[in-house]
Each structure stands twice: as structure tokens, then as C-alpha cells.
Write a protein that binds this DNA or RNA. Structure first.
Lengths: 222, 222
DNA sequence: GTATTGTTTGACTAGATTGTCAAACTTTCT
DNA sequence: AGAAAGTTTGACAATCTAGTCAAACAATAC
């Protein structure tokens, strides 16, 4: 009974039983925050509120723990593009995608951070898995990209490169989660009422991408 | 200091003279890639092509080396918003800002990665410096934000929250540099001709933000 | 040339970090 | 209850990492 400190930052600690899950979730947080090399097993153990040797009991080595976490994160990454498909006007499709995507990232911020850390570190894991997933299923963004392409072909929206647009949408929906401390410093609303900020952000991203900034008369000249 | 990136990891000793600078530049790369905790002094020494004790000879400790690097990065961050000011129509101001900003990030990718790593790790350095810079100079994005505000007040562009728009612009200009391995996987042009991709990206970001996607008739309804 | 100063090197230390283990404890089954 | 299996713990070993140091080396001054 030495250390049964509740120490629950996020999850309800009522389930102290499931040690493995607690370790895994702590590992998600720490690997996302610090990257593979920056993460310390002791920090993961502390976050999970368990003794360090238990990490080895359940996951053998740091490498294997990281691989388990990385596989989970990568799965979430692929899933993040699976928006409920929509057949209405493109404005609705876009709005639904942005809503769904932002909500998804908000619930899986660790995944987003892990992707970024993995990209920055240039670890081989990501490249391998991406190539693999790419071959078997095509680009994860495929569905939305095709919807964009169809909308341009139908003349429903102005001509635009679907890959560039996808990148813009994703950037606008994800980047602020990654830069949260800075964003909160620069934007009072993000600090004071984060939920309201996120909703405002969804609305803004849709409006600026769909309607743009130009006033009507000007658009006619373009 | 417009340091042009020495892209090569082990630059031949053509300029072996300035050891300190080589260490510093190697540290920029490694700290940006791995974050403060993830970086290893040995890795920095290898990147710089020198023996590890020289790091201590020139910078004393890892902490001090990191602080030197971080101060440099933070300065670049503040500078990145100093676009040449413009007084023409907002379309020109926006186009110039995007051009300048993307070029700046391209030349200072390590700064962008460092900012991200710092935000993700939640190190105190960034918060302190931001608060400090904020008090003395106001938001670094101030100039562009004010330009946006004026344009909306004049009715030159549709009404929009300047802070949200700044965030969208910055996201669209920076995020793809951070996610380069994934972007290159998903977008052939980024792999085959990166310069062309960057130019296409500038154009796309401006057009989608300024003109939006909606066709003319539809905008009139909004 | 020799002395002085600054730079580089290899060997070393202290502490951190990962990984192992057997003993203690808990749960489950009979 | 008692045995068996699974879990937790503290102590330990091997390796890695930051930091130190004195000696070797290089450049400049005298």
C-alpha cells in the first residue's frame, strides 16, 4: 500500500484494477508530449501512478511500449478522416467534415501531437506504416479529396487542387491544438472559454474557406 | 543574421574554423527535431562533426546551449511576422504577407519545429518569453491583425475575426513544413519538386482564403 | 626559437535510465 | 483452507549521458 495515490489527471481512478490500460494511456500522453527519445519510463510510470517495473511486466521494453502506442496512434490517424459521408451540396459536406474533424482531433490531441513529433523526428515507423496503408487503401484523405474533385468538376465550387485544399483544411483544424499554449497567449477566448473558442474556430474555418474574404463584387472580377 | 541553412549534415571542413557556429547550427537542428529532452549532446556533436567535450568548452552545459538556441529561435519567431508593410488593397497585403511568411518559414524550418516542440512539451521558456514580448511590444501578429481589422471596418473584405484569420493563415503556411514526411507521401508534387510545391501552396492559400470556394452566385446569398 | 594563450582530445566520474530478478503479495480455482 | 497463477515490489546490474579534467596540440606573441 505504499503508493496508491489517486493522482488521476484525467481519467476516473475508480478502475485502479486495469493497470495495463493506465500504463498505456499514460504512455500515450508522455510519448505525444516528448516524442520517443524524450519520453522517460519513470515519467510514464508516475503519470500512470504505478511502479516502473510494471511497465516491463506488461510491455517488456520501451521499444515495444512505443510500438504499441504508435500503432494505436496511427490507427486513430487513419480513422480521423472517416467522416460520415454526405451527399448534399458541397457546403454541407465541407461543414460536416470540419465539424467532425475538429471534434475528432479534440478527442485525440495526443494522436495529433504524436503525428507531429513523429514527422519532426523523422522516425522510420511513420514512413513505413504510411506507405503500407497507402498501398492497401489509398490516401486516407481519399473520400474527402474525391468529394472535392467532384464538386469542382460539377462547377459547384471554384476550381481548386483537392490535395492543396485538404492540406489547408487539415492545417486549419489541427495546428491550433498543437500550438495551444501560444494560441492561448495570443487569443483571450481560447484561454477563457476553450469550448466556445473551438466552436468559433469551426465556424470561422468553414466560412473563410467556403466564402473567402473578398466581397461579392470583387469576386466577379477574379 | 540571415544564416543560410547548411543543408548537409556533415559539411566538409571547408569552414572548420568556426567551431562554435557549427555547434550552434547543429544544436538548432537537433533541438528542433527532438526537443530539449529528446536531444542528445552526442548527436549534436556528431552533427557538428566535433568531439563532445567541445560542446562544454563553448557552451558549458546542455541547459545553457539550449537557452542560447531557444533565444535565437524565439527571436526568429518574432521576426517572422515582420512582413514589409503594405498600404494597397487588402488582397495585395494578404498576398505579400503569405509570400513573405512562407519564404521565412522555409528558411527557418528549425524555428517552426522548435516552436512546435516547445508548445507540445509545455516548457516554461516559451510562456515566459511570450508574456514578456507581449507586454513590451504587443502581439507579434499585431500589424497584420490591424490590417485585417481596418479592411473589415472599411468593408473591403467580409467581416471576420482578425485573430481567427491570422491563425488560419499561419496554420496554412506553417503546418505542411512540420508534417513534411507525411505531406510528401500524400502529395507527389511535394516529393518531386518541392520548390514548385511551395509556390503552388502560396498561390492556393491566398486564393482559397481570399476568394473562397463558393461560386459567385452563391456568395451573394450568404 | 620559446612562452603564452587558446583549442582539441581521450580518459574519467557521477548520476540517470533501462532492464532484470526473486521475493512478497493478491487473486482465483479446487 | 491450500495450491496455482497472476501481480506488485524493492533491490540490483548494465548501459547511457552530462559534465570534468589534465594533457596534447595549435596559434600567436615575445
Amino acid at each position: 500500500m505504499t503508493t496508491h495515490e489517486t493522482g488521476s489527471q484525467t481519467a476516473p481512478d475508480s478502475e485502479a484494477a486495469d493497470t495495463e490500460a493506465r500504463i498505456f494511456e499514460a504512455a500515450l500522453r508522455v510519448f505525444a508530449k516528448k516524442g520517443k527519445d524524450g519520453a522517460r519510463l519513470q515519467e510514464i510510470a508516475d503519470e500512470a501512478g504505478i511502479h516502473r517495473p510494471l511497465l516491463h511486466y506488461y510491455f517488456r521494453t520501451k521499444q515495444k511500449l512505443y510500438e504499441a502506442v504508435a500503432a494505436h496512434m496511427f490507427g486513430q490517424f487513419l480513422d480521423s478522416f472517416d467522416a460520415p459521408s454526405h451527399d448534399g451540396p458541397f457546403a454541407d459536406v465541407l461543414k460536416a467534415f470540419i465539424d467532425h474533424y475538429v471534434d475528432n482531433i479534440r478527442e485525440h490531441q495526443n494522436m495529433a501531437k504524436w503525428m507531429v513529433a513523429e514527422n519532426m523526428a523523422g522516425n522510420p515507423f511513420l514512413g513505413e506504416r504510411l506507405a503500407e496503408a497507402f498501398e492497401t487503401e489509398g490516401s486516407p484523405q481519399r473520400h474527402m479529396e474525391e468529394a472535392i474533385l467532384r464538386a469542382t468538376e460539377r462547377g459547384e465550387i471554384r476550381p481548386v487542387n483537392p490535395k492543396q485544399l485538404m492540406l489547408t483544411i487539415v492545417s486549419a483544424c489541427v495546428f491550433f491544438f498543437i500550438q495551444l499554449p501560444t494560441v492561448k497567449m495570443l487569443n483571450p477566448l481560447a484561454r477563457d472559454d476553450f469550448d466556445a473558442f473551438v466552436e468559433a474556430r469551426k465556424k470561422h474555418v468553414f466560412e473563410v474557406i467556403y466564402y473567402g474574404l473578398a466581397s461579392r463584387e470583387e469576386v466577379a472580377d477574379a
